[in-house]
Design a protein around this nucleic acid. Sequence first.
DNA 1: CGTATGCTCAAACGATCGTTTGAATCCCTC
DNA 2: GAGGGATTCAAACGATCGTTTGAGCATACG
Lengths: 204, 204
Amino acid sequence: MNRTGSTKERILGAAETLFAQRGFDGASLRQLTSAAGVNLAAVNYHFGSKEKLVEQVFRRRLDALNAQRLAALAKVAGQPGTRLEDVLDAFIRPALELSHEDGGSLFMRVLARAFAEHDDGLRKFLSENYGHVMRQFTAEFGRLLPRLSKEELYWRIDLVTGALTHAMSGFGIIQRKSDVSERAHREQTAQHLIRFAAAGLNAT
Amino acid sequence: MNRTGSTKERILGAAETLFAQRGFDGASLRQLTSAAGVNLAAVNYHFGSKEKLVEQVFRRRLDALNAQRLAALAKVAGQPGTRLEDVLDAFIRPALELSHEDGGSLFMRVLARAFAEHDDGLRKFLSENYGHVMRQFTAEFGRLLPRLSKEELYWRIDLVTGALTHAMSGFGIIQRKSDVSERAHREQTAQHLIRFAAAGLNAT
DNA sequence: CGTATGCTCAAACGATCGTTTGAATCCCTC
DNA sequence: GAGGGATTCAAACGATCGTTTGAGCATACG
């Protein structure tokens, strides 16, 4: 039972863990509040409903994640010397760094679940709040791959998305021993992902 | 409400659809039996429990799918002129053909869900019953990519798996108008997937 | 000190869950 | 057409779900 932080933060932390492990339906508010060490009614008091809690779990991480992604993209987008690998780095690295924050790796798993669930409400929420991020990256990929038709470009970005989501949802669960090897591990992972994605996007 | 076929088949069909749409937890036996046009108790009578029903939903499709995959692999594995694309074709084409069977495209979505759920029981079931298929494909990929280390090979196969699962779970939902354009669409899709995956596996 | 205000608490709400029961019905065999 | 195993049925089981309630507690301000 977690006893650090405010009630809201404890609920969000426990929700992230349990949603990752058992899914949005599978994790009950009783398991959740029990793990957070708060009263059952606290969820509805602080968040209004379970569905709103799910949205806040996403918001807490995605606001920061996508701000970092857009900031990293802005540094390379439109520049003359920019390579495909630089844009992919702007997309991937913030997510990998998040995976090594406290609970961050579990959040990537929650995100992977949200992709697999074809729930309309959740997709609409994610699209409305964070769709512009994917749109900006798509535009830059298109600029760097002018020989691809629009259809082909969308296909490949979708495939890259699937590969990265799948890979990152399983990444970072096993904790490294020291901070040095953790950074090395993250760097190695980033290289694996970027090399694969760049080659796939660049396929003849 | 479906009224064709035996009770068992109607349950399996409705289960596939509802599991794809609402997940294993989200789809209740009452919704399921109501959609199948059978009595609520029929699930426990014919399958024993909801969990056993889930396993049978997988078994019904995966037995045929993986047999086709292994048969296609056997035709090219170890041959002198075999290319990466041939092995990927053996893996992808049977799944795409399944997607155009009745309800098949929904099954790919169920499979994508099973990947996202990190449920231990389900993973154990899939690994025990169908792990040998991935092992054979991995061996052949390793043969065709001798310059990759074991670690790199596993990374890339994992990324390919994620990309294909993600892409195929959204494929085939929209029905094509005539059989000719459906076959053309499938062929085009196969080419997209194979080109991307081959380039990714082959990355420097 | 009195009283708002924000929060926590145990308890209960009705709804829905997977499963079980025992009787009714179907269908094949003798 | 009588007997019997296979199947279907309505009904109920206890458990658990998300949510609501109203009393109780804390802290801060006049």
